[in-house]
């Protein structure tokens, strides 16, 4: 009798562990604290400013690029200049200091992700970065994690987390199959 109880407890604990793993994998990502409380929701959502207005290098470079401080000030010299966050911005500009933004989306060093061909192929920014226009604070759970692999093993796999290799490959394969694109599937296109 005692033995059966033990087995039951162990099973329950295992189940709970799996549930909590599954939960943590799907949980809202922690967003890093940024030096200025910039809101994509206001800029991209409310005012519908085109992503590439600020991230202007995306169409011509590997990097999407961040707007220069002077570009921010182009609008904010007048717009909302009295708000405390904008005054922070103005302070950076006046001191000729770059704003130390904290990186949110990051792939490992051995991955070369170029924005340009994706913009050329008319992939929307949201495809990879999520509905940024709805986010006041941007955060993301990206990259590989063991949880997902374990869930995979147990047959509980959700689709891969964003910015993992499987997730990239999935999109490339789907696009090639459905839209006759020529998205490369060679390893060395990204890993070189």
């Amino acid at each position: 009798m005692r033995r059966q109880v033990g087995v039951g407890v162990a099973t329950l604990a295992l189940f709970a562990a799996i549930l909590s793993l599954a939960h943590s994998a799907g949980a809202q990502p922690a967003a890093p604290a940024q030096p200025i409380a910039f809101s994509h929701q206001i800029h991209a959502g409310q005012y519908k400013i085109n992503c590439q207005y600020c991230h202007a290098d995306a169409r011509r470079s590997e990097y999407a690029g961040l707007p220069s401080v002077s570009r921010c000030m182009g609008c904010h010299k007048i717009t909302a200049a009295d708000r405390p966050e904008i005054q922070k911005l103005a302070a950076f500009f006046n001191e000729k200091k770059p704003i130390p933004w904290v990186r949110v989306f990051k792939v490992p060093e051995y991955v070369h992700f170029p924005h340009k061909p994706h913009v050329r192929a008319e992939v929307t920014c949201q495809t990879c970065h999520g509905p940024v226009e709805t986010m006041a604070v941007v955060g993301a759970t990206t990259g590989q994690n063991l949880t997902n692999d374990l869930l995979n093993l147990l047959g509980l796999a959700r689709s891969s987390t964003p910015l993992t290799m499987g997730w990239c490959v999935e999109c490339h394969t789907t696009m090639n199959a459905t839209k006759q694109t020529k998205a490369p599937l060679e390893c060395v296109v990204c890993h070189h």
Partner: peptide
């Protein structure tokens, strides 16, 4: 051989 995020 185990299923993984890399699909490899």
């Amino acid at each position: 051989p185990y299923p993984n995020q890399r699909y490899l």
